[in-house]
Structure formats: structure tokens, C-alpha cells
Simulated scan of single mutants.
Amino acid sequence: MEDFAVEYLRNESVYRGRYRILRKLGEGGSSVVYMAVDMKSARPVTVKVIKEHVFDGKAAAQIVEEETRVLRFADHPGIPSVVAEYDDAFVLDYVPGNSLEKVLKKKGRFDEKEVVTFGFELLDMLGHLHGLKRPVVYRDLKPANIMLRPDGHLSLIDFGAARFMEQGALTDTLNLGTEGFAAPEQYGNLGQTDPRTDIYCFGRTMLLLLGGKCSPELMEVIDKCIKPDREDRYESCAEIEVALRKYPGRRTRKRALKVAQLLAASAAASAVISFAAAHYDAALSYAAEDAQVRVPAVKERMGNAGIRIKMILKERYGVDVDDLLAPEGEADR
């Protein structure tokens, strides 16, 4: 069999008499990936050619069989479908767009809202894999393996590290993953990987997409995902989804509490001001005959009372009344 991974497929060459190679998409330690056109259907496809004897001497045909079996079993709109398989390669539906890794390099970081939106899509795909009749652990979630399609949605690519969970297994057959994203148990001697392994990779991915900067509330969710001991992590993707739906509420409640405190202080200040105004008017009426003498004294007393009221509100409620009277937005500066 010709070693296509070593010789490489040239642009415009035809693989297996059916797939016209357009360009090389990328190369990893175990395979070379090309974009091609299926001349039978005229649709774009991805051709993944396996390098021989990469995984403990496994033949390329065995690697093809293992990866395509997971892909065929997955059956999810965010996961590419298998078009065909051969003894040295397999063909998938082409996923248009760019990897989040490429987008991240250009953009620097994504904002929190974008990352949370991505998070829900990733959790849907991972949760689907974990919930299959034969649960699948993806094991290699990272920005390079996540495609951002032109329609704004995500797809998972490269299932080379994915495996079926085996009931009763004490360890993985092969320890695969990417340093910086892989969970501690992926390095061996900590039992077989499980859905919590993907949860760790998910947390690390979210953190990188955020550039390490996010609200304390979201960081709490991420921190629980990336606990070194898997027993301390979320048990499932569904749990993380619940936490992500609640976290904006926690932020809103904290903001609402602050606003409520300000409104209460404002009401108190209004009452004080109304009280002072009423007495101020009474003083003016009472001192009508001698206003020029009495009014300045009354104003001074009211001013001193106002200062004292501000001090009490500051000491007891931690609220600066001046902030209440400042134009919107200035109080938080």
C-alpha cells in the first residue's frame, strides 16, 4: 500500500479515482488532512490520510476503523458524517469556517457572552457523546479541534483521541490528549477516562477563549470544571449547563441588591430632604417679619443637618448620597 502520508497528495491529484484534492488543510503526528471535491456528488469533503504505525504499531486500517466507528455512532449535526472509508484513509463531510484557535489568534480573546454561547454548544455535543448507548469520551477538546462555521455555530473535528467507555476497564488502552488541556487522568495510572475528563478539557478551553479574564461568577463555574481530582468536578455536562444558566442570574441579583440599597438610601434621603424642606418653609413663615436675619441661620442649620445625614447614611448603609444624585454611570467610575 502506498504511504500517502509520506508522499503527500498533490493539489488537483485524484485520490481513489473519486476525490480531487484541492489543498492540504493540516498535518498532525498521526495523519494528514486535505480538502477535496467528491467528483461523484460534486460536494466538498475532507480526506484524512493515516500515517502507518503511529499508535503502538497499529496498522492504518485499524485506526481508520476505530475513528470512523465512533463518528458513525455519534450522529450529531455538530459532528461531521463519514462519507467513505478505506484501508489508509477515510472521507468526511467538509466543515467550512475556521478553527477557534485561528480566530483566537487574530482576535486575541472572545468576550464573555460569546464564550458562554460557545460553551452551550460544546456541552450539547459532549453531552450527546456521553449519553450514547455506548458512551464516548472525546478526550481532546481544544480550540484547534473546534470549527466556527460561517453560520456562527460550532462543529467538533478530529476524533482521533475519542474512545468508547468500557464498563469495568481500569485504564485507557492509550493515553492520548493535548498538554495544557488534558486532565490529570489522561496521563495514566488514575483509571480510565470518563465524561469528567471532557469536562476538565472544556473548562481549560473556556479559560483560554476568555483570555483568562471573566466575571467571578463565571470563573466559579470554570474552576469547578478544572479541579485536579475528577471527584470534585461537575458530574455531567447537564450540571454545567444549569450552572451557566444560573450564573448571569447571580450577577443580576448582586446588581439588583446594590440598586435596592441605593434606592433605599435614596428614599431615606428624600424623606430627610422633604422633612427639612417642610420645616424650612415653616421657619420662613414664622420669621417672615425678620427674614433677612433668620433665613441665613435656618439655611445654615439645614446645611449642617444635611451633612450629618450624609455621614449617618455612609456609616450605617455604606452608601454615598452624592452617588445617588450623580448622573447615570458616574457613580461606578
Rank of each mutant, 00 (worst) to 15 (best):
Y138V: 15
R139W: 12
D140E: 10
D140V: 02
L141V: 10
L141I: 11
L141F: 11
A144M: 06
A144Y: 00
A144C: 01
A144S: 14
I146G: 04
I146D: 03
M147L: 09
M147S: 01
L148I: 02
D151T: 08
G152Q: 01
G152L: 03
G152W: 02
H153L: 08
H153C: 05
L154R: 00
S155F: 04
S155V: 04
S155H: 12
L156E: 04
L156P: 09
L156C: 12
L156G: 13
I157W: 07
D158K: 11
F159C: 13
G160P: 07
A162D: 06
R163P: 01
F164V: 01
M165R: 09
M165D: 00
E166V: 15
E166I: 15
Q167Y: 11
G168T: 03
G168F: 09
A169Y: 03
A169M: 05
A169V: 04
L170S: 13
T171R: 15
T171V: 11
T171F: 07
T171E: 15
D172M: 06
D172L: 09
D172A: 12
T173N: 10
T173R: 15
L174G: 00
N175W: 13
T178E: 07
T178S: 15
G180V: 02
G180N: 05
G180C: 08
G180R: 00
A183C: 06
A183D: 04
P184H: 06
E185V: 11
Q186P: 11
G188M: 08
N189L: 14
N189G: 09
L190H: 14
G191V: 13
T193K: 08
T193G: 09
D194W: 03
D194F: 02
D194V: 04
D194R: 12
P195S: 05
R196N: 04
T197V: 09
T197L: 13
D198R: 11
D198A: 09
I199W: 04
I199M: 09
Y200E: 02
Y200M: 05
Y200C: 05
F202Q: 06
F202N: 07
R204K: 15
T205F: 11
T205G: 11
T205K: 02
L210M: 07
G211Q: 04
G212E: 03
K213D: 14
K213I: 15
S215K: 02
E217I: 00
M219Q: 12
V221T: 01
V221H: 01
I222W: 00
D223K: 14
